[in-house]
């Protein structure tokens, strides 16, 4: 074995040497040629805009008035943002949305994964059915859920009324229900994603672990606690990381469903951001808000990844 590996490595270095002789390029030069375009692209569409946004966040720039002189106003945008009651409201709405969607999606997604993993007849058929919402466009999903949510003609209100006798429910129009209306749709759409990753985790558990537990007379709860959960947790946490970041930036579904209303009950951070930037054209101010959101996600994400690595090891 080590012999073989050595021979392969030697063959590789030989072919490397030949390749570099032919083109007269060092390995480093070739490496740069390969990654150069990607780095340029990254600089052009990621790094530069980020730096430019940071610059704008310290100015009074308005994108709809290109002729107006741009004035450096220091941290005034930030001071106004952090002092504003409204901003905290938008962030709270966002946190409410992210936390509840994650809770529902973890519980339902993990549950579905456990069911599907039993490999009953037709399991793969049902998997495909369950995955459909995830594959639809958010614009389409948002639009048809507005029909489903119709208080008089929609099926949602009808079903809830049928079982709970609540009368007609105006999910989108009522201040109390609107935040839940977007949570329900997001859960409907993205639970399959969490389920899929949980299923990958479950499938990675070898049978003999459960067999050993069976011989040790472990009960169902112990099997779950000692085997299933530790093995699935890294997958689950990864799914939550992806979905959490996505939902922190949630925009499309909510625009289609409630457009932030009624009032500003479902005005999530990114929806407010779009309003400030492209309806009120307060470019400098919204740049500062964007930077605050970026730092928040980045910070939370980093903490989360640290925890994730700890769980994995």
């Amino acid at each position: 074995m080590p012999d073989e590996a050595q021979r392969a490595r030697r063959a590789l270095t030989v072919s490397n040497r030949i390749a570099s002789k032919l083109r007269g390029l060092s390995d480093t030069a070739i490496a740069w040629i390969f990654i150069g375009p990607t780095i340029l692209l990254l600089l052009a569409i990621n790094i530069f805009p980020l730096l430019w946004t940071i610059y704008l966040s310290f100015t009074n720039y308005r994108a709809n008035q290109p002729g107006r002189p741009v004035r450096w106003i220091g941290t005034r945008n930030y001071e106004r943002l952090l002092g504003s009651e409204d901003i905290w409201g938008y962030l709270q709405a966002t946190a409410h949305f992210v936390i509840w969607t994650m809770i529902f999606q973890i519980v339902i997604g993990f549950g579905l994964a456990l069911l599907i993993n039993r490999n009953f007849r037709g399991a793969s058929f049902w998997t495909t059915i369950i995955l459909i919402p995830m594959m639809l466009s958010p614009a389409v999903v948002g639009t048809f859920w507005t029909y489903i949510y119709q208080p008089q003609t929609g099926i949602f209100s009808y079903i809830v009324d049928f079982f709970a006798g609540t009368g007609a429910l105006d999910m989108i129009g009522s201040v109390a229900l609107a935040p839940w209306s977007i949570i329900i749709v997001d859960t409907w759409m993205w639970t399959p994603y969490i389920m899929l990753l949980c299923l990958a985790g479950l499938r990675s558990i070898p049978d003999y672990l459960y067999e050993a537990a069976e011989i040790d007379r472990a009960n169902a709860l112990q099997r779950f606690w000692y085997i299933t959960l530790p093995r699935v947790l890294p997958f689950l946490m990864l799914a939550v990381l992806f979905r959490g970041i996505e939902n922190f930036k949630m925009f499309d579904l909510v625009v289609e469903l409630t457009s932030g209303g009624p009032g500003s009950t479902t005005e999530l951070a990114s929806i407010n951001l779009k309003r400030e930037a492209f309806e009120k054209w307060r470019t400098g101010y919204s740049s500062a808000f964007a930077i605050i959101l970026f730092v928040t996600i980045f910070g939370l994400g980093n903490i989360y990844v640290k925890v994730l690595n700890k769980v994995k090891s």
Binding site: P206, Y208, E211, A212, I215, Y226, I227
Partner: peptide, 15 residues
């Protein structure tokens, strides 16, 4: 009431 030592080590991970 038997004990089994598996060909692959079947231990509870993370414990």
């Amino acid at each position: 009431d038997v004990a089994f030592v598996f060909q692959q080590y079947s231990l509870y991970p993370h414990y």
